[in-house]
Design a binder for these strands. Structure first.
Lengths: 126, 126
DNA sequence: CGGAATCCGTTACGATACTG
DNA sequence: CAGTATCGTAACGGATTCCG
């Protein structure tokens, strides 16, 4: 994606734009908290507090921050119920579920290689 | 993966260990630079400088740092040729190539949703 | 050329407190 | 309950320099 080389020609202008957009999105999405939130949501609709309970170790602040980012990119849908106390629900959108599939695979990969990585770490001498 | 709830029973001890190990690995791997390096390597063997040229925007420091981390986790193999000037080559290991497949999918996903995300961003009012 | 170490500004992040 | 704001600290990350 990001590894293309461009000439100075004006025709490349939109290619450059697409490429830097791709990089932006990738940077947004390729981070620990975002991926764990997406994984936690899965096919379900969860409230703010429920996500916080699922994603262990995440702080209130990081959760809101990442949820806003995911919403901005159209990967999660935010539904506010005007009740008191407030109830806010989050759901993955179509594209969000698509991304989730790749995160699933990454989690599977992690599980499959726990042992290999553990022993590799033990062997590793800087 | 990370979303399990444990009781206080001693039998859960190794489950906890595996879980926290999984989290560690996930945190290592789910970051922008690591994934871009893995993507850049692909099936090829590349020298340090070649990777730096492929992964645009990465600094000398971030590259060495992430390569060390990937090596420690057994995802890349590092080969030093004792010449002068030195020549150091990096290749994905088996597990590394496995992870790369999931990164490929994530890159594909990014490309497929460029437009959707772009318009979602335009619409988004905080 | 690749790597380590240094300096230093920027961001990430947690803790806390306050609002509707 | 969810969100915003503020503050302090720790980690990130870039630029630079020196070494094999």
């Amino acid at each position: 994606m990001v590894t293309k080389q461009f000439s100075g020609l004006p025709e490349d202008a939109d290619l450059r734009r697409a490429d830097s957009l791709a990089r932006e999105i990738f940077s947004d999405v390729a981070n620990k908290w975002a991926l764990l939130i997406i994984e936690a949501l899965g096919e379900r609709t969860l409230r703010f507090g429920e996500i916080r309970d699922e994603v262990e170790g995440i702080s209130h602040k990081m959760l809101t921050q990442n949820l806003r980012m995911l919403e901005r990119n159209g990967l999660v849908e935010r539904n506010v119920h005007p009740t008191v106390p407030p109830k806010v629900e989050y759901t993955l959108t179509g594209p969000g579920r698509g991304l989730r599939e790749t995160v699933d695979l990454m989690c599977d990969w992690t599980q499959r290689h726990l042992r290999h990585i553990e022993t590799s770490r033990d062997r590793f001498r800087p």
